[in-house]
Each structure stands twice: as structure tokens, then as C-alpha cells.
Write a protein that binds this DNA or RNA. Structure first.
Lengths: 160, 160
DNA sequence: TTATGTGCAAACTGTTTGCGCGAAG
DNA sequence: CTTCGCGCAAACAGTTTGCACATAA
């Protein structure tokens, strides 16, 4: 019998799971946080703070921009949510899914698409940096930039 | 007899060298561009656009912010200057030094410091990405994030 | 009851844009 | 002379902050 998607705490769903971890941290359990977590959980992907604002205020009108930024901040501080810098303006957020392998993010310069890559993608680089200059690389904190396959195909033939 | 710093076009200095390449591109040769190139050349490092604004307007008062952003843009388009996204707000610019090996940038989350790493640091990652999802990685377009040796030392003992 | 989160308005950083004048080629 | 760059003001995106009030614990 394989565990399937049975991980984290007690099969309660990612939101309740996250809420539980928040409470364990001594954090307050507010409607705003619940909503933000729900948005992140249902998005199943990477959202910019502004996207979270849009979706969260749709679920709960009156919820303020600033609150959401602060909420995302505190959720990150509690390791319930992680953020990725993309190089293009917006920081992306997503729920930490226990049981899901952490991954590295890759972003296309042209279409802005975000792609997931295996978490060990930067293992070699990490070790080299550590050894060479004592730098501790945080592989999933930055999205790597480049051009995705689809965009490359679009430009096929044009050298530049 | 070794070439020493004798590279690029005719030992004219990086600025004139860049200006020559600009002209070759059919680009106009304006005071603003000259000044921006001088700032970048003398900085010998990575400058945020705002830093360039400060230094350039010091050299030539009246030079406008917007002009500098546009200038940096066009210099990048002409491959005379390159930019790096750091994840923290500001994009960094530096002159393309012919003869100098291109390098990857690494940035410390805590102190914001920028460090150079060998250009082949991401070779493995680049090949894996290409093979796996056809993604063409641009290794020097993003700064990798993490914690530098100095900042790690500062926190020595504190687990978090 | 009390520390902590929230709503609101406003500021702030980094960057872009439309417009008309001016200067490089 | 014509095209391209420049100065200016203004807007823009993304995010942060100070303050007073509300509320989870």
C-alpha cells in the first residue's frame, strides 16, 4: 500500500495543515491568513502578491492589499509559504507542500512563464560555491532566467 | 610576450572601445551615452541604474534620470553593457569588458553583496535544462541568491 | 485584557512613457 | 534636413509604513 498523497499532518488538506503549523508556531489564526492560504492552495502554482490580492479580495471583499503583503510575509517567516524572486518585478509565492520535493524555478525572459526543475539542478553549483568562496546557495530562492522551448521555437530562424 | 590588458579594439580604453562598437551599430554618439559609459567603466563593478544616475549627473548636471534608463537600455541592446537581475529590487549594470571572461553573479540575501563566480558554474544546470525541457539558460542574467561567507560567520552559533 | 493583526492612506523605490524640442549624422 | 535622442513631468508597478482600531487568544 502506497501512501499516495497522504503526507503532512493527518490528511487534513494543505490549508488546515498550514494553519496547524501556524498555530504550533504561536501564530494567530485569522480570517485573512485563512483566505490567503486558501488562495495559494487552490492556485496550485506560483502567484505574485498582486494575484493573491485579486483572488483573496474576491473571496473576502474588504481585505486590504497591505494586509495581504504582511500576511504573505509572516507566512514565509513561518515556513508555511515560500517566495521566489523572478528578476522581473514580482515576487512569487507558493504554499509549502509537505511531501512534494522542493524544486528550483526557471523563468522565461520572453513569456514570463515559470517552470519547475528538479531540486538537485544546482547541487553542483552549490557545492562549488561553498567550497570556493564559502557562499551558501539557496537554490530555490531565485528563478533562473533564460528562454523556454516554446519561445525558442517562435524565433526559429531569426538569429536575433 | 604576453598580451596583458591589450585586447578589444586598439588599446583605446573600454569607453572608446564601447563607443566604437556603438558607432559600428549605427548608434548615435551622444554626450549622455559617453557619460554613462564613463561611469560604468570607472565603477569597475556592478551598478544599479540609480547609482549610475547619481554618478552621471554628478559628472554632467542636468542629465535626466529617464535618459539614463533609456541609455542603459540601448547600451544593453547593443551588447556594450549587460544587466543582471538580483531579486532585490534593483537591476545591476556593467560594461562588457572584452577579454574578461564572462561570469555568473551571486548575491547575498543579507548584505546584498554581489560576488562573481566562474562562468562555467551553471554549465551542468544549463545542459540538464536544455536536455530536459529544451530551456536555454542564460547563466549570467540572474544573480543566484544565498548567504555569503561573511554573513554566515556573523550568525555563527545562532541556528536561525 | 493584551499582544498582535488589520484597514486605511500615504509614501517609497525602481522604472517607464508621451510629448515636444534639440542635436547627431 | 531628418531621424533619433533628450529633458521634463507624470504615471506606473510593486511594496512598505505609521497610525488607530479591532480581535484572537
Amino acid at each position: 500500500m502506497r501512501a499516495g498523497r497522504n503526507h503532512g499532518s493527518a490528511e487534513a488538506g494543505p490549508v488546515d495543515d498550514a494553519l496547524a503549523r501556524l498555530r504550533a508556531r504561536g501564530q494567530r489564526l485569522t480570517p485573512a491568513r485563512r483566505v490567503v492560504l486558501e488562495v495559494l492552495a487552490s492556485a496550485k502554482g506560483h502567484l505574485a502578491a498582486e494575484d493573491v490580492v485579486t483572488r483573496a479580495t474576491a473571496l473576502q471583499p474588504g481585505l486590504h492589499r497591505a494586509t495581504i503583503y504582511r500576511t504573505l510575509d509572516s507566512l514565509c517567516a513561518s515556513d508555511v509559504v515560500v517566495h521566489v524572486h523572478t528578476g522581473h518585478g514580482a515576487t512569487l509565492y507558493h504554499l509549502v507542500d509537505h511531501g512534494e520535493a522542493p524544486h528550483v524555478h526557471v523563468s522565461c525572459d520572453r513569456c514570463g512563464g515559470i517552470f519547475d526543475a528538479p531540486s538537485d539542478l544546482l547541487d553542483v553549483a552549490r557545492e562549488r560555491l561553498e567550497r570556493a568562496i564559502g557562499f551558501r546557495l539557496e537554490p530555490s530562492h531565485t528563478a533562473l532566467l533564460g528562454t523556454c522551448a516554446a519561445c525558442l521555437a517562435t524565433t526559429k530562424g531569426a538569429s536575433r
